[in-house]
């Protein structure tokens, strides 16, 4: 198929990653090679094959609606890079 630099840029934006030009070149090249390899699955005719999202057939795993104590708030926020008055804090979100 061949991946273009523009596609790499688009995918990077979706994944919230950024690369400099050299990295971009390298990634485009590497991803291109990997995609060329993985593309071989499209040789197979799978028109009558069901996809397997899970390998072990389970269904309806449910829990009762019982309250479990929440995490104490100091532990909720203990790992937070920035916090304020019991909240997590991030740069201002503009809507």
């Amino acid at each position: 198929m061949g991946i273009t630099k523009e596609e790499v840029e688009y995918i990077a934006r979706l994944a919230r990653l950024e690369f400099d030009e050299t990295e971009k070149e390298a990634f485009t090249h590497q991803l291109d090679k990997i995609l060329e390899y993985v593309d071989k699955i499209n040789e197979l005719d799978t028109s009558h094959v069901q996809p397997s999202s899970h390998v072990i057939p389970l269904e309806n795993v449910l829990r009762e609606d019982n309250v479990k104590e929440s995490l104490p708030r100091d532990l909720v926020l203990a790992n937070a890079p920035k916090k304020e008055r019991g909240y997590f804090k991030v740069p201002k979100v503009i809507e």
């Binding site: 609606d65 309250v67 909240y87």
Partner: peptide
């Protein structure tokens, strides 16, 4: 109107102090 959240046992009460009804799952 359930007592707990969709995927964890945290309460769903309205108006609780910020982040007081959270656990590793919903966080």
């Amino acid at each position: 109107a359930t007592k707990t959240k969709l995927f964890c046992g945290c309460r769903t009460t309205f108006g609780a102090p910020p982040n007081s009804q959270t656990c590793p799952v919903c966080l």
